[in-house]
């Protein structure tokens, strides 16, 4: 007599071609899902990096004395929205400008046309509120105008939402596909063993005794499929980080690989396998 694990392995081996097809299909689904998730993860990191460079430039009215400007900066710091706030006087701004534009050109104007400015670097988690923050700053009597890179932030936000939604759809669709493949394989094996199961029921086997081998079978299918995907992704990761590929695509070094998937993915595979086989078996009825 065999343990549930031995019975499951025997069942899978007896229909090895359908088992192999199921594992490969599950592996492909897991691979796509994981690739999409890694893509989204990297997109998230990329958008955060870009966002952290988002600066609000506040142009201060000319007549405002520096003491009031510093008080205004302190108030901005108290809001907790910014990582860094720096004051650039119009004299310092002019000096910087002289490094870019011919000094004779500035002399032609005859006076310093620049304003005192405050540059505020917004925190990542507050980037969604940038518009609201800007509007509040504009309300101050000290402020002439406020500039922030609204179009870039909007484009980034739209891209992130679109890709995220697309990722969620792919994730749900392929997760359902994985569930269905395991469900169909286990159900098929269960039907093939109807006669044996009927004998077990007549001999007093409990539903859990009957279910164990099939649930183990589903777990094995999910686990092997997810391991196949994990191994493929790791191989591709190392291939992408090989010397030749980096020379050809230097940006690939920026790709962040979440190594947690090495254990999370097999766990998800195992859980999905167990869950879908449990559903496939349904309620065991005695007659």
């Amino acid at each position: 007599m065999k343990s549930p694990l031995q019975s499951a392995i025997k069942n899978l081996w007896l229909s090895k071609w359908s088992t192999l097809m199921a594992i490969v299909s599950i592996g492909v689904c897991f691979f796509i899902v994981t690739a999409v998730l890694i893509g989204l993860y990297n997109l998230d990191i990329f958008s955060k990096k870009l966002s952290s460079k988002a600066t609000i430039v506040i142009y201060i009215k000319n007549e405002i004395p520096e003491t009031e400007i510093y008080q205004f900066i302190n108030k901005l710091k108290e809001t907790g929205f910014f990582t860094k706030i720096q004051y650039i006087s119009k004299e310092d701004a002019l000096k910087e400008m002289q490094n870019i534009i011919e000094p004779s050109m500035i002399e032609l104007i005859g006076y310093n046309p620049l304003s005192n400015t405050v540059e505020a670097f917004i925190k990542d988690e507050k980037i969604e509120k940038i518009e609201e923050i800007t509007q509040n700053i504009k309300k101050s009597d000290l402020v002439e105008d406020v500039y922030y890179p609204s179009k870039i932030i909007y484009a980034l936000k739209t891209l992130k939402i679109t890709l995220w939604n697309l990722g969620v759809i792919i994730f749900c669709f392929l997760s359902l596909a994985i569930l269905f493949i395991i469900y169909a394989t286990v159900k098929n094996h269960y039907w093939k063993k109807t006669e044996e199961i009927e004998i077990l029921k007549l001999l007093g086997a409990t539903p859990s005794y009957i279910r164990y081998p099939f649930i183990t079978e589903g777990g094995i299918l999910g686990l092997l499929g997810s391991l196949l995907a994990t191994v493929s992704i790791v191989i591709i990761y190392f291939f992408l980080h090989s010397k030749n590929v980096i020379e050809f695509l230097p940006a690939i070094t920026q790709l962040v690989f979440p190594f947690e998937i090495l254990y999370i993915l097999p766990c998800i595979g195992l859980l999905l396998g167990v869950a879908s086989s449990f559903v496939a078996l349904g309620k065991i009825k005695y007659q």
Partner: peptide, 10 residues
């Protein structure tokens, strides 16, 4: 109940 039947069959 269905769950008692295995025990009846023992």
């Amino acid at each position: 109940r269905q769950s008692e039947i295995p025990y009846l069959r023992r």
